[in-house]
């Protein structure tokens, strides 16, 4: 069984979950724990938005099937079976990405990879809300990463040098 792809997300859910499913797809091989929690977060978001239209139900059932299968396949991965370890895993990964982007930014390296790192780290900080309220620090980093990704992107498009 393969993961329900980005193209199959119904229109009623696309705006809310597409970005998290994309991060999941990008991490399926690189870090299956990150992929698992991105899909879990997308599942929860989607269920809160639309679980009654036939298209949404069909998508949600296939996403749930895949999540259950992933959890079984990752039976030796404690971060999937214990959400406290899972939370630490996602948090470390998000912060590592954030620090990479921040260091690159401060070194004057502005590129698509820096924008993407800021953006992905902020999305993973969204995913962290699965485990409860965010700490003040993470909340601050999440806002900064979202703003910075938009800002650098705007500068690159308009030809300005980011400050």
């Amino acid at each position: 069984m393969s993961a329900p792809g980005i193209a199959t997300i119904p229109p009623s859910l696309k705006g809310a979950i597409q970005k998290y499913i994309r991060v999941a797809v990008e991490h399926d091989k690189r870090d299956p724990v990150i992929a698992y929690y991105c899909r879990l977060y997308a599942m929860q978001q989607a269920m809160a938005i639309d679980k009654s239209s036939p298209e949404a139900r069909q998508y949600l059932v296939s996403l749930m099937d895949f999540l259950e299968k992933s959890k079984n396949q990752l039976k030796d991965e404690q971060a999937v079976h214990n959400e406290i370890i899972g939370q630490a895993h996602v948090e470390n990964y998000a912060l590592k990405l954030f620090l990479y982007a921040d260091n690159e930014d401060r070194a004057g390296h502005f590129g698509k990879n820096v924008i993407k790192a800021f953006l992905t780290s902020s999305l993973l900080m969204d995913v962290l809300t699965t485990f409860g309220d965010l700490s003040e620090d993470i909340e601050k980093n999440r806002k900064y990463a979202k703003w910075k990704a938009l800002y650098i992107n705007k500068c690159i498009q308009s030809g300005e040098t980011p400050i």
């Binding site: 599942m43 269920m47 139900r57 949600l60 059932v61 749930m64 259950e68 959890k71 079976h81």
Partner: peptide
């Protein structure tokens, strides 16, 4: 017509409950 509608919505809410239960089970450690 209304009887069919009621059956349809009962079925839909049963499926929604099933998804919620599966989600809760998935998150059990």
């Amino acid at each position: 017509g209304s009887a069919i509608g009621a059956t349809g919505s009962t079925q839909a809410s049963a499926e929604q409950d099933e998804l919620s239960q599966r989600l809760a089970k998935l998150r059990q450690m």
